[in-house]
């Protein structure tokens, strides 16, 4: 970490575990759950949020001294909406089927609470470089959870990863399926996203006792 001072690297590393936006700060859960049935959309979502939050934090931080505090929510919404439109248009141009798959959830990045939360809590009070690091750090923390959930749901639910049949072919009974292994179709249904995140929280909090609530 020669590039970053100790304080700066803390901005990136803290949200990855002990100050994770999803499991600790309870922000941005809305979009996190719906698109994690497979790994690929989870990764795309994570990358989109990293872009929007990183860039948005810089923009807000540059404008922080000229935004009247009364209308700051609207200003923030306009900044996020613009960035999200860019993401949406890029996805539509270069990955059309994926953008269909994510449907309204790219649009819902606008109301992702992580973004407004970081704008309010950090970008309005700090310089552009630190805001950028904070934005990228928090988006990474969000992305990590998304990817973990997507990984387990796709692996256990359909026996594939990014579409590759890592466990063998379920129809021709090769690989693991030759021994009578079956996919757990339940994992790809929406409710399991909640339960997987619940289990992640459980594991994280039993490893770090400080995080336990009351």
């Amino acid at each position: 970490m020669g590039l970053l001072s100790k304080k700066d690297s803390k901005l990136i590393l803290d949200p990855l575990a002990d100050d994770n936006p999803i499991t600790i700060q309870v922000l941005g859960i809305c979009s996190a759950l719906a698109i994690t049935a497979q790994l690929k959309p989870s990764i795309v979502m994570a990358v989109s949020v990293i872009f929007v939050l990183g860039a948005g934090n810089v923009v807000i931080s540059l404008m922080r001294n000229i935004i009247p505090s009364k209308i700051r929510i609207i200003v923030q919404l306009v900044v996020v909406a613009t960035l999200v439109i860019i993401v949406d248009q890029v996805l539509k141009a270069y990955a059309y089927s994926l953008s269909k798959e994510l449907s309204v959830f790219i649009g819902l990045i606008i109301t992702n609470c992580i973004i407004m939360g970081r704008f309010e809590a950090f970008a309005l009070a700090n310089g552009p470089w630190r805001s950028f690091l904070d934005g990228v750090g928090n988006a990474l923390g969000y992305g990590v959870i998304l990817i973990i959930v997507g990984f387990f749901r796709e692996l256990l639910g359909s026996g594939t990863l990014l579409g590759f049949k890592v466990l063998g072919d379920s129809v021709e009974k090769t690989g693991l399926y030759a021994f009578g292994y079956e996919n757990n179709g339940f994992m790809v249904l929406p409710p399991m996203a909640l339960i997987v995140i619940g289990v992640i929280i459980w594991v994280q909090r039993s490893r770090n006792k400080d995080l336990i609530e009351d």
């Binding site: 249904l189 929406p190 909640l194 339960i195 619940g198 594991v203 909090r205 039993s206």
Partner: peptide
């Protein structure tokens, strides 16, 4: 269980309710 208190158990209950709603 202590690590599940608060957020964790809420997630799991919501998951179970979602199964019901399905």
């Amino acid at each position: 269980p202590a690590p599940l208190r608060g957020l964790g158990i809420t997630f799991i209950i919501t998951g179970l309710m979602a199964i019901g709603f399905m």
